[in-house]
Design a protein around this nucleic acid. Sequence first.
DNA 1: AACCCATCTAGACACTGTCAAGTCCAATCT
DNA 2: AGATTGGACTTGACAGTGTCTAGATGGGTT
Lengths: 216, 216
Amino acid sequence: MTIKTADRYHHGDLREALLRAGEDVLSERGAAGFTLRECARRAGVSHAAPAHHFGDAAGFLAELAAVGFDRMTDAMETRRVQSGPGSLAQLDAIGRGYIAFAVQNRALFQIMFRQDGIGVASPNLQRAGGAAFGVLQATMARVLAEHRPDQKPMPSLALAWSAVHGFATLLIERQLDGCLGQDGIADLETDLGGAMLNLMTGALAGPAVAGPGKKS
Amino acid sequence: MTIKTADRYHHGDLREALLRAGEDVLSERGAAGFTLRECARRAGVSHAAPAHHFGDAAGFLAELAAVGFDRMTDAMETRRVQSGPGSLAQLDAIGRGYIAFAVQNRALFQIMFRQDGIGVASPNLQRAGGAAFGVLQATMARVLAEHRPDQKPMPSLALAWSAVHGFATLLIERQLDGCLGQDGIADLETDLGGAMLNLMTGALAGPAVAGPGKKS
DNA sequence: AACCCATCTAGACACTGTCAAGTCCAATCT
DNA sequence: AGATTGGACTTGACAGTGTCTAGATGGGTT
């Protein structure tokens, strides 16, 4: 395919080639169908080659997850800077970026938040994951400073993240097919976007507006 | 162990024994470490025995997921009837039941919402999943009828589900360890419970209270 | 020019899911 | 009663997997 000399003994950038192959396998076969040997096959190397770059399968998946987090950070940041200056508009933007990334990178998104069979201790994964989280954190901090300066960031942040992440997860696992229209993505871009923001900002309302057992 | 004749050629209730073994394997080794042969080993039968009851691995996991959905329905219903008569209190109760089940059945919860490597077409799984969803649906319908009779149920339902599901997922995958206290479950039972309800009910607020780009 | 060492290969091992064939046993039929 | 039928389970095999070891290769350094 590429002009790159693919028949050398030393591949040159086998690491990158393996990551690309891994992403292809992931998107074609799903997270359950992922295989080290298939990745090696697509990169045109022997089955044991990946081990020299990633250690074992968990290490490989960790690096793939890091790639995913980096791309997710880009998706969120891109939409954030394109949106208006208001902090709520930016929160809406990164929420949409989060969900759009999940839809466009199904299997990758799934392994990014797994703890089973993936090397969570990988420094690169922790860096990339932290960077993605930082976007959420910074944006939520801006929203709170602007609209609820008395509130601590943490519970609101966790809950807003939960809302967006849960929606993305259910959407990806086709769990919302019965609820939304034929394709939830179209709905998402219209009505549901505002509702999503509403849900997110619901996380920053003060003490429960209507506690359990309290009459309306 | 049991008085049941365990040395018969025909096991008697191998199906149930395999399901129990499967759940043990799932909770001990995690979803990634699940293995048909290990389940057969623990049930004291040959490695091919499970196939006669569940077809293949995907069929086995589907049946395990169905068991999980049934137990989850119980967890939600139990807490709902124990709560007060108010619909919001009941919504809060099933939310807590949902999350408590996820925490107490980590790996089982994970496979329940997977679409990879699990027989989603299994009638029993669809029945159990539908029943669990029905609890959410009915409770949300009651909340809307009581507090927002003008609103259609669907978007609110999907978003409230997203919020609870996302929180449970992130909690289980240890993604919130940095956010919440040392163990998020303790927090959950105190402050965060109300905030969670607040987040859920945020889904039923009408048109966005503060759209993006609109000043407060 | 000779060496060194990271890079990659080749082979082996234990393990997995699935398939085909055979074995066992309880219940039914004559 | 004895024969038979059919479901439950076993046995053995096969291709595929992750990982380990030892060895082959060749680019970069001295």
